[in-house]
């Protein structure tokens, strides 16, 4: 039972992280290796603000907002400019790796390298459940429903989906790819940093603490199918559950290896991802 809860808990965090990876992948066609590091920055900012203000909720939101802004600026002034000059997706992906390292160094300079404690939004238990689990559950449900509403029901969401399907046609309709995608990066990192602050109390915070969750979110997204948001959600939860149940009952040492193993098996059986679909084009 405990392993189920801890599995679901990290699974939900992976959902939040992988959703950002998914959004960026769909609109920009690159894998953002700096996703975890941009989120870490927001978590650090939340930590510092909390020490100054004692108000954790506001600190977390402001930290997430800062992550969003950094992400948006990174897209607008580096990735977008690179794209415009004809850098290919592989080159752009390498730029995100470079940015990840730059952020890590920056974080060491400002916050030092020693791991820090991060406070929980809620302590104790809520009925039989750990309170932090309930917080994670509610926040991620809220964010996911919000994202569903934004992407499926609003004009902005239609624009996001249009750009992910055909950029050139979007431009011919006067949709500003630059603006829409910048905002997508903002949202992706805003949610990512919230995830960072939610999972931080379970770990110690240092400049690498989101690396492992980032990799697992990525695996979850690919296992679920990077072209389907529901696949991304389900894949991430499967990874979280598999990792913790295996780690709890069988071997904690091999839990990460096990995640890679199931990813391998899933991909061999269903290469396009669990809910991935091949888009059949009309000729």
């Amino acid at each position: 039972m405990d392993y189920l809860i801890s599995g679901l808990q990290v699974g939900l965090i992976y959902v939040l992280l992988s959703f950002g990876i998914f959004l960026i992948y769909r609109t920009t066609r690159i894998l953002n290796f700096a996703h975890g590091d941009i989120a870490t920055l927001g978590t650090f900012i939340a930590l510092t603000l909390h020490q100054k203000t004692e108000n954790l909720l506001i600190s977390v939101v402001v930290g997430a907002f800062c992550s969003g802004v950094v992400s948006m600026l990174f897209y607008r002034f580096i990735i977008y400019e690179g794209e415009r000059r004809g850098v290919n997706p592989l080159g752009l992906t390498i730029i995100t790796i470079a940015f990840a390292y730059i952020l890590q160094s920056f974080e060491i300079v400002i916050w030092g390298a020693e791991p820090k404690d991060f406070p929980s939004l809620a302590y104790g238990r809520f009925f039989i459940f750990p309170a932090q689990f309930v917080v994670i559950l509610l926040v991620s449900l809220f964010l996911m429903l919000g994202m569903y509403f934004i992407t499926m029901k609003t004009n902005f969401g239609i624009q996001i989906r249009a750009i992910s399907q055909n950029r050139e046609a979007s431009a011919t309709l006067g949709i500003s790819v630059k603006k829409v995608v910048s905002f997508v990066w903002f949202i992706a990192s805003f949610i990512g940093a919230i995830a960072g602050s939610l999972i931080a109390p379970l770990y110690f915070v240092d400049q690498f603490f989101l690396f492992d969750p980032f990799v697992k979110s990525f695996i979850g997204a690919v296992v679920g199918g990077l072209d389907n948001p529901f696949g991304v959600v389900i894949g991430s939860i499967i990874v979280g559950l598999a990792e913790n149940i295996f780690g709890g009952y069988i071997s904690i040492k091999f839990k990460t290896a096990f995640v890679f193993f199931i990813a391998l098996v899933f991909l061999l059986i269903k290469p396009e991802g669990l809910l991935g679909r091949e888009i059949k084009e009309r000729v």
Binding site: N155, I158, R161, A162, Q165, A169, S170, I279, E281
Partner: peptide, 16 residues
């Protein structure tokens, strides 16, 4: 034609 294949007809129209 630049029709967005996975959007509905209505969504395609809404874009403009």
């Amino acid at each position: 034609r630049g029709v967005f294949p996975e959007l509905t007809v209505e969504e395609n129209l809404k874009l403009s």
